[in-house]
């Protein structure tokens, strides 16, 4: 099931499948490891302010607005 990264709660994880929001944003995110196929886990999502995610063994902070453009596949029943 695809859902925006911003909808994942703290501790949830998935695989990046799509990037919406154009080439420029995609290029920036790719350099930070957020690219289709990458496994991503949300460290903290307080529902406001930026969220922190773990991707490729680094931690990246990303604004909720940008996180909403990263579509993530999560497995049903797996939090």
């Amino acid at each position: 099931m695809l859902k925006p990264l911003s909808d994942l709660g703290s501790g949830e994880h998935g695989i990046v499948r799509e990037l919406q929001g154009g080439r420029r944003l995609a290029a920036r995110l790719a350099g930070l490891g957020l690219t289709p196929g990458a496994a991503v886990a949300v460290m903290h999502n307080y529902g406001r302010g930026p969220i922190t995610v773990a991707v490729m063994h680094t931690r990246v902070a990303i604004g909720l607005g940008q996180a909403a453009r990263v579509m993530v596949e999560t497995r049903e029943g797996e939090a």
Binding site: L32, T52, R59, A61, I62, G63, G65, Q66
Partner: peptide, 11 residues
């Protein structure tokens, strides 16, 4: 428009 906040959190 609002701007993008994307930043690495180093160890």
């Amino acid at each position: 428009a609002k701007t993008a906040f994307i930043m690495e959190m180093p160890l």
